[in-house]
Design a protein around this nucleic acid. Structure first.
Lengths: 209, 209
DNA sequence: TAGATTGTTAATCGATTAACAATC
DNA sequence: TAGATTGTTAATCGATTAACAATC
């Protein structure tokens, strides 16, 4: 299911950013926006915005521009955030807790339905109202409840093993926070958040500014 | 100072990834690698690896390939991680603590030298051996010690104000974890980590796989 | 109606890939 | 020497930008 046309990675990555700006316009009670106006705010070209949106349909009107709320809702639908995703977090450390507590993630339709850890002292505690469960029970949890995404925040040395298990259990998406490459079959989507990569890019730019 | 040739964003973003793979080779006591071998491991073309590296100099040898350790060190130098960067964290919440505790960040030459928060109950506590200081003292801290990068993990509504202060205090780089766009003068480099953008891209890919 | 702005086609630009002489 | 592999130039591919007819 889903859109069959292949849309480039670059376009997909811009969608959440559009959503962010549209949300801001909405919060300021702005009803309409042209590609020109939006391009000025976002620092890209009006052409690119129109080209990007045209990958998914027609959302504007000649002479008028785009209805902010309609465009926001449309992009939400494209991203699937209107339907919602169930997320479990494996690893109840600082990063896991940050995810479980993130308002911006929840506000986009991602619901943390479970948190798992291996440490005795963490099991049974609560994070943002969600009980931390024993990692031993994660297989059963995935089999019996609907889990779309697994956020992986376990120590580096455990990442590979846990990731492979998740694939085996039929999880559709892995959100990997370990500074480690995961090579898994293409049936499971892996999205990496390599914090150290990000800060290294920042370091490079500082030195070469 | 630094390299005057303008290197494209795409190339820069691949550098930390090269470093990651080279580190792994090093750990497995592999002394040499050809662009072909590396390309197979990394899932890109040998051509691209050679093209990327050629932006910065000549690191290989015909008929031999690349000395793993030398290439690792060279890329470290390009990224400036050999010299080291001092980082302060503003916001001692889960994300701030995750940064202060991250081994992968520290192993790449980024040293957390201070953590700041506004909350009375956090001030004076220790995170990874670093004392949490009062946000009121951050200006003085920046003026008197060498701070290269500020990691911003404060709540959304405080982000803009703190970011502007950091610019004013002469900080060179901002590592922004808020789901908010920062528009600051180009003298200060901003690198964004928008976790919600990342999980939305994952959601899209799951739906359209 | 006149002005504004879309969606799309064509042109341009930049990034990736292929090819190959140089040489270890 | 023969084989391997670099760094670089040329060719290709894809993404961004410009232009414009359609139309609100």
């Amino acid at each position: 299911m889903g859109n069959r046309k292949i849309v480039s990675e670059a376009v997909i990555k811009r969608l959440p950013r559009y959503l962010r700006y549209l949300c801001e316009l909405k919060n300021n009670d702005i009803l309409r926006v042209s590609s020109k106006e939006l391009s000025l705010r976002m620092g890209l070209t009006a052409s690119q915005i129109r080209q990007d949106l045209s990958c998914f349909g027609e959302f504007g009107q000649q002479g008028y521009g785009y209805n902010v709320e309609f465009l926001f809702d449309s992009i939400s639908t494209i991203l699937g955030t209107d339907k919602g995703f169930n997320v479990i977090v494996i690893g109840a450390g600082n990063m896991g807790r940050a995810i479980a507590n993130s308002e911006s993630i929840q506000s986009r339709g991602f619901k943390v339905t479970g948190i798992f850890d291996i440490k005795e002292e963490l099991i049974g505690s609560e994070i943002n109202g969600i009980k931390v469960l024993d990692i031993k029970d994660v297989k059963e949890f995935i089999k019996t409840t609907n889990v779309d995404i697994v956020a992986l925040t376990v120590p580096r040395e455990r990442t590979k093993e846990v990731a492979e298990n998740m694939f085996e259990y039929g999880v559709k998406g892995l959100w990997n926070f370990s500074a480690m490459e995961l090579t898994l079959p293409k049936e499971i989507i892996v999205e990496n958040v390599h914090l150290s990569d990000s800060i290294m890019v920042l370091g490079y730019k500082i030195n070469n500014n």
